Simulated scan of single mutants.
Amino acid sequence: MEPPPGTAEEPELRHVEKDVLIPKIMREKARELCSDKVQAFTKCCQESGFLMIVKCQQENAALKECLTTYYNDPAFYEECKIEYLKEREEFRATGIPAKQRQQKLPTSM
C-alpha cells in the first residue's frame, strides 16, 4: 500500500525538491567542504582588484574543481537528499522552518 501523500516516506520528490532545494543544500555543504579554496580565491580577488580575472585563474580553477567534484558525486547527492528529507519531515511535524529551529534564544532578556 502506498503511503499517503505528504508523508516523508513518499518515494517521489517534486521537481523543485530535486532540481532546486537539494542542489541548494549541496552548494552550501560543498562551499563548506571547499572552504580553503573559497578563502584563497576570495583573498586573491581582494588583493587583485580589476586584474582578478587574469591573476586569480589558478585559484578559480582549483575552487571549480573542488566544487564540481562534490556536485558530480552521487553519494554526496544522496547524503544531501537524506538531510533535506529529514528537514522536510521535521517541518511537517512542527510547522517551523529549519532556519527558525536553529536560531537560539537570546541569553539575556
Rank of each mutant, 00 (worst) to 15 (best):
M1E: 11
M1T: 10
E2R: 14
P4D: 12
P5T: 04
T7Q: 04
E9V: 12
L13F: 02
R14I: 00
D19H: 15
D19P: 00
I22Y: 07
P23T: 03
K24T: 00
E28W: 05
A30C: 09
A30H: 03
A30T: 03
S35N: 10
Q39C: 01
Q39H: 07
A40C: 02
F41Y: 15
F41A: 12
C44G: 01
C45N: 03
Q46A: 09
E47Q: 12
F50K: 14
L51V: 05
M52W: 14
K55L: 12
K55A: 10
Q57S: 03
Q57Y: 00
Q57M: 10
E59D: 00
E65D: 15
L67D: 14
T68Q: 13
T68R: 11
T68M: 07
T69W: 09
Y70V: 13
D73Y: 01
P74F: 12
P74E: 15
A75N: 08
F76I: 12
E78N: 14
E83N: 13
K86M: 06
K86R: 15
E87T: 02
E87R: 12
E87N: 10
A93Q: 09
T94D: 10
G95C: 05
I96E: 04
I96F: 02
A98C: 02
A98N: 03
K99T: 01
K99E: 06
Q100F: 15
R101Q: 08
Q102N: 05
Q102E: 09
Q102H: 08
Q103P: 04
K104R: 07
L105C: 08
M109Y: 15
M109F: 15
